[in-house]
Nucleic acid binder design. Structure first.
Lengths: 154, 154
DNA sequence: TTGTTAGTTAGCATGACTTGCAAATTAGGG
DNA sequence: CCCTAATTTGCAAGTCATGCTAACTAACAA
């Protein structure tokens, strides 16, 4: 995501207010490589701004994600992760300490081979997102953005 | 996962009881390609066995997963999916209808290229699981299987 | 500096998904 | 048919995230 200063500019242009809560989060997130959860950001933010609400953390993070300033990453560990790195990259999750590291996809072959970069890869999960055959051929009939969280029909 | 008959055998050997609930789930899961959620299995099972508990669905599914008879797949759609296909494969998620399809990893290049197989891939998520540099060099000090769901420390 | 007001925040309620627990049942061997 | 340990149930509780609204305030104008 962009720097706090640039974000401030963007927010002003969109007539969004530059509250201290937002500014704090901008700085906590900028170049943050730890893939924090909302909860962990809340703890850190609370030290600098006691009383800040967890609700505000979620709120602001959601806005930034909608604006394309950060990615929401669900690594299947319970809580959503927030990643200010918008470049194309993948993730490595340590099963021992839980740490998450960014991975340049071009280094995947090395990872798979053994433990280059110091990572010992045990499993690789790949999820493709897109449109299936049927939906692809169907005209857009319903209102756009409707479905997409259905249950498997079995 | 194995056939209901084979599973029955396995359960007997382990002195696990062959309850009607379990037998029903065995048959509902065997060769099931829909990647059902616990909830959707519950609905289907309820028709054939009114009164069956959702708790039992979770219970049994968890046991089968522990026994290596099926995979728990978290595709970041809220609920966990259960997949009896234990072969190495990946998943395609349709963003329109929510359908999930198995994908042979060897066909990935085709998917990426365009829409072979009828799938139009828009995004590919890759998650590597393993051990990071630090954890890899550390001796196993604590009791095994302790950590691994921590928060990013930031 | 003060007034105005639309955008924000804080808190609590609610919802989705899953697991813990204890009492009531039951499969399966004797 | 009896027994007992394994199971199933139903409900409470926990985690993560979002809805809702009253109170608050940044931003702008006078």
């Amino acid at each position: 995501m962009r720097s706090p200063t640039e974000l401030a500019q963007v927010f002003r242009e969109k007539q969004l207010k530059l509250t201290p809560q937002r500014q704090l989060l901008f700085s906590l997130l900028h170049q943050n490589q730890s893939h924090p959860t909302a909860e962990s950001l809340y703890e850190i933010a609370s030290k600098q701004m006691p009383g800040i609400s967890l609700r505000t953390i979620y709120q602001t993070l959601g806005e930034l994600a909608d604006m394309g300033e950060l990615q929401l990453v669900d690594l299947g560990n319970g809580a959503m992760r927030f990643d200010p790195n918008m470049g194309e990259h993948q993730h490595f999750v340590c099963g021992s300490c839980g740490a998450i590291h960014d991975v340049d996809i071009t280094s995947a072959p090395k990872l798979r081979a053994g433990s280059a970069d110091g990572f010992a890869v045990e499993e690789i999960g790949v999820v493709f997102h897109g449109r299936c055959n049927r939906c692809n051929h169907k005209q857009q009939v319903r209102s756009p953005g409707s479905q997409a969280k259905n249950k498997a029909s079995n």
